[in-house]
Simulated assay, not measured.
Amino acid sequence: MKIRVVIIDDEPLARLAVKVRLAQRGAFELVGEFSDGASAYEGIVTLQPDLVFVDVEMPGKSGLEVLAALPPAQRPMAILLTAYDKFALQAFELAALDYLLKPVDDERFDEALDRAQQAFPYRGPGRAAAPAASTAPAVRSFSVRVGARTVLVPVTEVERIEADGDYATLHAKGKTWLVRERLHNLAMQLDPGQFHRVHRSSIVRLDMIAELRSLTNRDALLRLRDGSVLRASRTYMPALAAALQQLEARSDS
């Protein structure tokens, strides 16, 4: 069964960019596109798509207002598109699957579609999209080959993961372990409530972040509790900022 998609954006070129990318993925079917919030609301109610790409800021009703106006049971999975990162927390409060900054990076776009495919089987008829953290069971340990032995590294001990070509390096309690899997695949297996990809080459456990320092190009430097310093790319910053706020809210409650 294909995932039925609607695109909502007041910029024709932006809609075209999404359509071109969707056409390369056979699991998705475009069923409608809209250029304003009012017609988008009516279109979603009529077409009942599984997934919507929504521009946050449009003339009249904004993308967030369109989603908020829908009853939760009728709210499709949503991937938000915007040139600004200030709406990230609102997006995740509405259970958006992802939040992409324009111009959208190809790799980030593919990640968002992968997340939609991962979440789709867990959406029953008439159910609203659930936050990505609850769409599928997260992996609990990594199986690592060390010579002739197989070692299980608990996810709870992993502090960060870095890309190493077609492999990935786990950093856990002062040790490093090489996993025979790409970083992109690992990112889809981890609980986004605990781990976040911050760069195309690194994933970080959220509670390991001790300091976040914004840079002039909208990237950021992360200082971890073990003293490591990593760069966070602007394309991952909105989702990371929202996740950190949610983590702080959980710890305060």
Score class of each variant (00 low, 15 high):
residue 199 H to E: 01
residue 92 F to V: 02
residue 136 A to R: 14
residue 17 A to P: 00
residue 145 R to H: 12
residue 121 P to E: 11
residue 38 A to P: 04
residue 67 L to I: 07
residue 117 Q to V: 07
residue 15 R to V: 00
residue 72 P to G: 01
residue 50 D to I: 00
residue 98 D to C: 09
residue 180 R to K: 15
residue 37 G to P: 03
residue 97 L to T: 08
residue 75 R to G: 00
residue 30 L to F: 11
residue 26 G to T: 06
residue 124 G to K: 12
residue 230 L to D: 10
residue 111 E to C: 08
residue 102 K to W: 03
residue 61 K to M: 03
residue 43 G to M: 06
residue 143 S to T: 04
residue 247 L to A: 09
residue 50 D to G: 06
residue 167 Y to T: 11
residue 208 M to T: 07
residue 49 P to A: 09
residue 12 P to K: 13
residue 103 P to T: 10
residue 201 S to N: 12
residue 27 A to D: 15
residue 61 K to S: 04
residue 90 Q to Y: 06
residue 183 L to T: 05
residue 155 V to M: 11
residue 33 E to D: 14
residue 95 A to Y: 10
residue 88 A to W: 08
residue 36 D to H: 13
residue 23 A to V: 01
residue 222 L to K: 10
residue 193 G to V: 05
residue 1 M to N: 13
residue 128 A to E: 03
residue 56 V to G: 04
residue 147 G to I: 09
residue 74 Q to V: 03
residue 39 S to C: 10
residue 187 A to I: 06
residue 123 R to G: 05
residue 83 A to W: 10
residue 1 M to G: 14
residue 10 D to S: 15
residue 97 L to E: 02
residue 95 A to C: 12
residue 67 L to W: 05
residue 152 L to K: 12
residue 112 A to L: 00
residue 176 T to M: 09
residue 151 V to N: 10
residue 38 A to Y: 01
residue 63 G to S: 01
residue 84 Y to H: 15
residue 194 Q to N: 13
residue 153 V to G: 11
residue 121 P to H: 10
residue 179 V to A: 10
residue 174 G to S: 12
residue 209 I to V: 14
residue 157 E to A: 15
residue 97 L to V: 08
residue 48 Q to H: 12
residue 194 Q to C: 14
residue 25 R to F: 07
residue 162 E to T: 13
residue 249 A to D: 06
residue 198 V to H: 09
residue 202 S to I: 07
residue 15 R to N: 04
residue 11 E to I: 12
residue 249 A to V: 08
residue 47 L to D: 01
residue 201 S to P: 01
residue 184 H to Y: 13
residue 40 A to K: 07
residue 10 D to W: 14
residue 33 E to K: 10
residue 122 Y to G: 08
residue 93 E to Y: 05
residue 141 S to P: 00
residue 200 R to Y: 00
residue 54 V to R: 06
residue 204 V to H: 03
residue 192 P to N: 12
residue 12 P to L: 09
residue 174 G to P: 12
residue 177 W to Y: 15
residue 41 Y to A: 08
residue 91 A to H: 04
residue 106 D to W: 07
residue 11 E to S: 13
residue 203 I to L: 12
residue 86 K to T: 15
residue 208 M to S: 07
residue 128 A to V: 00
residue 195 F to G: 10
residue 50 D to T: 06
residue 187 A to V: 03
residue 70 L to I: 09
residue 205 R to E: 08
residue 241 A to L: 08
residue 32 G to M: 15
residue 78 A to H: 01
residue 121 P to Q: 06
residue 182 R to Y: 02
residue 212 L to V: 15
residue 4 R to V: 04
residue 81 L to T: 11
residue 186 L to N: 02
residue 217 N to R: 12
residue 86 K to L: 03
residue 218 R to M: 02
residue 216 T to E: 06
residue 235 T to G: 09
residue 76 P to A: 03
residue 108 R to P: 01
residue 90 Q to M: 02
residue 31 V to K: 14
residue 170 L to V: 06
residue 33 E to P: 07
residue 149 R to I: 00
residue 240 L to C: 00
residue 153 V to S: 10
residue 226 D to M: 00
residue 20 V to E: 13
residue 205 R to N: 05
residue 30 L to E: 12
residue 182 R to C: 01
residue 252 D to L: 13
